[in-house]
Design a binder for these strands. Structure first.
Lengths: 337, 337
DNA sequence: TTGAAAGCGCTACCAA
DNA sequence: TTGGTAGCGCTTTCAA
C-alpha cells in the first residue's frame, strides 16, 4: 500500500539500487544526470518517502537516542532537554523521551524498551545508585551519558553540576548572613545530587564550626509538595531554624509556602535558598536566592559527548563538572539578632 | 555481533520460528512446555533482546508516536506531555518529541522526518494555519490529533480548550471589576488559540458596549519576553489601559514585569489576567488571575483518541473542546475611580 | 554507469 | 507441536 523504492524504480525504468543511490546521493558514485532526473521525477510524482525502519534495519542504526527523565514537570528538565534537542535535531536524531518517575522498576523497564529499539545512544537524567540498569546498558554496547545526576561509584561518562561546591556556596552565604541554625531539606538519598548537596552542607557547617544537628536535616525528594511537608516538620521543632537550604528550587518553593502558611515571612523570619536556578523562581515572592546551574549547557554538552561516542570519536573529557553560581535575590537576609 | 533470534534457536535446538512463537507467547499457539523452557533458557543464557526494528519492519508498525511542540520551556507543554506519556507508556508506545519553535519550515521538516520513521500516530501541539503540513500527513494515512491548538478551517480531530469562552470569562471578570480600558496582549495570529482568544475578548467587550480600541490590542507571541515588550508598548499609550488580558500566562508574567519596572503596581494600577493556568503562576507576585485549562487531561484525551484511531476503533467524538475555568487570584482588582 | 542479488532480524504462512 | 521459507524495504557488494 505504501510506496516503496521498487515502485519508484519501476516508474523510472531503473533498478531499485539505482534509486537508492540517487536518494543517498553519494558523491563518490557517479550517476548519469538523465537517470537522476528520471528518478527524482518518479519520486515526486509518486510522493515517495523512504522507510526509515527498513533503512535502519539494513544499516543497523536507529538514528534515535533515548532520554530518561524522572518528571518533566520539574522545570529543570525542559531546560536540559532544550539543550539536548538543539544538537539532536541538528544531527537528525530523534529524541525518544521516557519518564521514570524516579521509580527503579520503571527505569529498568524503559531502558530495556529503548535498548530493544536499538537506540544509538542513551541520555540518563534519572539514575538510581543501583548499578543493575547501567550494567545492562553496557552489556548492550550502547553509548550513554549521565546528565545532571552522576554516579560517584562508577566510571560512567557524565555531565553534572558541582553539587558539593554549589551547596557550600549556599550555606556559606547563609552563614555570612549570620545564620547558625541552618536546616537542609535534602533530596533523595539514592541520588548523588541529593548526597553531594548534603555533603556540601555538612562541610560548610563544619568549616564554620557549626555542629551538625540531625533534626535540621530532613530527606524529602524533588517536588514542591515534598518541600512543603518537610518544612512543616522543621517548623514543629522547638528550636526552629532561621535558615533553610533546600536541595532544589521546587523544594524551596514548597518550603516558602509552608512558612507563609504559618504566618511567618521569608526572609524576615526564615531565609530560604534553592538549587538549580530554574528561571521562574526569580518571579516568586520573595524572589528566590538559589544556586544556578547552567542547565541548557548541561544538556548540550551531554548530547555532544554522546554524539562523539556514537561516532566512535575520541571524547577528550568523559566527566564534565559544571560550576554553579550563587544568585542572591530576596529570600535570604541577615539573621535577626 | 548482536545476538539474534537465530542464535537463540540454535542454542535451544529449535527453529527460529519457534523462538518467535515463544517470545510473543501467543495463547492460541500451543508450544510444548519443555520446548518453551529450553528456549527461555537459551534467551537468558545468551542475554538475547529482540530487535524492535526488525520486528517493526516485518509488522509494518513502529510502536512510536511523534509529538510536535513549539517550545518545551513553556510549562504548558510539560503538563500536556505528562498526560500523553501516562497513556503512551501504558500502551508501550514510545514518544518521539520534536520541537518546531513555532517555525513553519521546521514544522514541515519534523513532520516528514516522523513520517519517514513511520510513526503510528502524530500528536500536533504546534500547528500553523497553513494546511500544507496537514495535507502531507493525511496523504500518508497516519492518524493524527491536534492538541491545544486546533484548526478551525479543517475537519481534523482535535482536543482543545474553549478559547473563546475562556477569553470571555477573563474579560467579563475585568468588566465586572469596573474596567473599561482593557487591553489584550494577543498570541500569534496564525494560531487559532491566538485568534479565538481575540474573538472572545472582542465579543465580551461588545456585550458590555465597550468600543474596541485597536491601540489596546498588540500581537505578541507566547513567551515571556514578548509579553514584556508588548506591555511596554501599551504603557506608552497616552490613555493607558487599566487592565490587561494576556493570551497566556507567560505573556502575563512578562507584562507584570514591565509594569513593575515602570514603578506601577499590579493590581492597584493595572489588573492582569493570564491564560492556561500553569501551576507556577499562583506563586508569582501578585498571584496571577488566570483562565485555567485542564492541561493534563487534554494530553491524556488526545493520546486516547489517537490510540483509538491507530487501532481503527471507532472514535465517538473527534473534536473535544474542554471547558476552562476562571481562577481569581491577586492580580486583578476593582478599577480605581 | 547500472543491474542482480544477498541479507539485515523478524513474523507468519504452509506443511509436515 | 514444530520446521521451512518467503518477504517486510532498504543498502551494498559484485558483475556486467
Amino acid at each position: 500500500m505504501s510506496i516503496t523504492i521498487k515502485d519508484v524504480a519501476q516508474r523510472a525504468g531503473v533498478n531499485a539500487s539505482t534509486v537508492s543511490r540517487v536518494i543517498n546521493s553519494d558523491s563518490k558514485l557517479s550517476i548519469r544526470e538523465e537517470t537522476k532526473r528520471r528518478v527524482l521525477d518518479a519520486i515526486r510524482e509518486l510522493g515517495y518517502h523512504p522507510n526509515s525502519i527498513a533503512r535502519n534495519l539494513r544499516l543497523k542504526t536507529s538514528d534515535a537516542i533515548g532520554m530518561l527523565i524522572p518528571d518533566i514537570t520539574n522545570p529543570l528538565f525542559p531546560e536540559v532537554i532544550k539543550g539536548v534537542e538543539n544538537l539532536a535535531s541538528e544531527k537528525d536524531l530523534s529524541l525518544i523521551l521516557c519518564h521514570t518517575w524516579d521509580n527503579h522498576e520503571k527505569e529498568l523497564k524503559m531502558i530495556r524498551f529503548l535498548l530493544n529499539r536499538r537506540v544509538d545512544g542513551l541520555l540518563l537524567a534519572s539514575v538510581h545508585m543501583r548499578a543493575e540498569a547501567i550494567e545492562e546498558i553496557e552489556k548492550s554496547g550502547t553509548p550513554y551519558v549521565l546528565v545532571n545526576r552522576g554516579n560517584r561509584k562508577d566510571v560512567s561518562a557524565y555531565v553534572v553540576a558541582d553539587n558539593t561546591a554549589g551547596a557550600k556556596m549556599a550555606v556559606h552565604h547563609l552563614i555570612g548572613l549570620g545564620h547558625k541554625k541552618i536546616a537542609h531539606i535534602a533530596g533523595f538519598l539514592y541520588t548523588d545530587t541529593g548526597l553531594e548537596r548534603i555533603e556540601g552542607y555538612r562541610k560548610e557547617l563544619n568549616l564554620a564550626d557549626i555542629p551538625f544537628n540531625s533534626d535540621y536535616m530532613v530527606e524529602a525528594g524533588y517536588t514542591e509538595p515534598e518541600g512543603y511537608k518537610a518544612m512543616n516538620k522543621l517548623l514543629l521543632l522547638p528550636d526552629r531554624p532561621t535558615a533553610v537550604f533546600a536541595a532544589n528550587d521546587l523544594l524551596a518553593m514548597g518550603a516558602i509556602l509552608a512558612i507563609h502558611e504559618k504566618g511567618l515571612s521569608v526572609p524576615e523570619d526564615i531565609s530560604v535558598v534553592g538549587f538549580d536556578g530554574i528561571w521562574l523562581v526569580e518571579r516568586i515572592t520573595p524572589a528566590l536566592t538559589t544556586v544556578k546551574v547552567p542547565l541548557n549547557e548541561m544538556g548540550y554538552l551531554a548530547m555532544n559527548m554522546l554524539f562523539n561516542k556514537m561516532k566512535g570519536m575520541p571524547v577528550e573529557q568523559e566527566r564534565i563538572v559544571l560550576k554553579p553560581s550563587l544568585v542572591v535575590r530576596c529570600s535570604t537576609d541577615r539573621v535577626k539578632s
